[in-house]
Simulated scan of single mutants.
Amino acid sequence: MKRPLRAVVVGTSFGGRVHVPALQAAGFEVVAVVGRDPERTRARARDLGVEHALTSVEEALTLPDIDAVTVSTPPDAHTEPVLAAIAHGKHVLCEKPFALDARDGQAMYDAAVAAGVVHMCCFEFRWRPEEAVAKRAIDGGFLGSVEFATCVQITALVAGGVHQAFNEEWWFDRARGGGILNASGSHYIDRFRMWFGEVEAVSARLQIVGDHSADDAEDTYTMTLRMSSGATAFIQQCSASWGESFRTIRAVGDRGSVWVGRDSSRCPTISRCHPNHPGVPTIPSTRSPSWNCRGSFDWPSAFATRSTPRTRTSRRTSARRRAPRSAMR
């Protein structure tokens, strides 16, 4: 019987809340957590059932049979542990934002490629059911030629100060990689890169609209992107708005649209022109093969109804909840 893959998690805040349980659920043996405060690291390791509580990345990397390292430190502390793990030949998963600047990001990427290790940045929302279904609709031509996409999110995330799930020590410190663009906007940029290819041109503005110091990192941003597919993508996010939260993500093609609303546990809505319109791809009628998430959703049901121009699936994921706020650190 093969032994389980063994991992080290660097960073005990988000790393302890998310990385350790996720690795354990995936069958990894998390053998060590690495933090700055010895007492706090020991307490979190004990609560998580992790054997080693360490304050040195190098010491963790000398433990026997370590296969992978995940890095969930503040953004300004990614480069050193990532490069150390790569130097020891370990596979690496690093939290976003990947680096404070392109130079450090390129250095980590080049080192991983040269070492031949598996390397990835944490953009976990790529695998949420609604994200996968929307991408499949776009890639499969169900929307025709997509020329426009938008993502708007307005929340009170930091309207009254930093949420307790986040690290107040650095979250508003622009020099350390704080701010809503790095914390959350990076996910939205990644979404559109997955859907439409690389960014070819960008126009953007960062703002502080809440009751924060002018020296703080931004709580609001607006950007327009030209994607390599030819689509124009608009992203706007404000995390300092009192009142009800709002979110919508939509891609618009010449044959239909797909969008995801605030309740992201729902599968996306897909609205199309009449199914007999010339140029519209044939809608799959088979339910096999299926794309499944926790045994509760298979994607063909999102495209199976042909009697009306507008189709909305009623199947939902088994977990009736939104993404945890801590998912944005």
Rank of each mutant, 00 (worst) to 15 (best):
Phe196Leu: 13
Thr79Arg: 15
Arg316Tyr: 07
Val199Trp: 03
Leu83Lys: 05
Ala68Gln: 07
Val82Ala: 01
Ala112Tyr: 06
Met194Phe: 07
Cys293Glu: 12
Cys121Ala: 14
Ser257Ile: 00
Ala26His: 08
Glu29Tyr: 00
Arg262Val: 01
Val69Asp: 10
Trp291His: 11
Ser307Trp: 12
Ala175Lys: 13
Thr73Asn: 09
Trp299Gly: 04
His119Ala: 15
His274Asn: 12
Ser72Thr: 13
Arg126Leu: 04
Asp215Asn: 11
Thr269Glu: 14
Val258Asn: 00
Gly161Ile: 06
Gly197Ser: 07
Pro64Val: 09
Asp254Ala: 06
Met1His: 12
Asp139Cys: 05
Lys90Gly: 05
Arg316Pro: 00
Phe246Asp: 05
Ala201Ile: 00
Glu200Trp: 01
Thr286Pro: 00
Phe98Leu: 15
Thr232Val: 14
Ala22Cys: 08
Ala45Thr: 00
Asp216Gly: 04
Val8Gln: 02
Thr12Ile: 15
Glu39Tyr: 02
Ala114Lys: 15
Ser203Asp: 15
Ala319Asn: 10
Asp215Met: 08
Leu206Thr: 06
Asp298Leu: 07
Phe303Arg: 01
Val8Ser: 01
Val152Lys: 11
Val118Ile: 04
Asn292Cys: 07
Leu48Asp: 04
Arg40Pro: 01
Asp139Tyr: 02
Thr222Asn: 07
Gln207Leu: 14
Ser271Arg: 13
Phe246Gly: 03
Leu206Glu: 13
Arg287Thr: 10
Ser257Thr: 11
Met108Gly: 01
Ala53Pro: 00
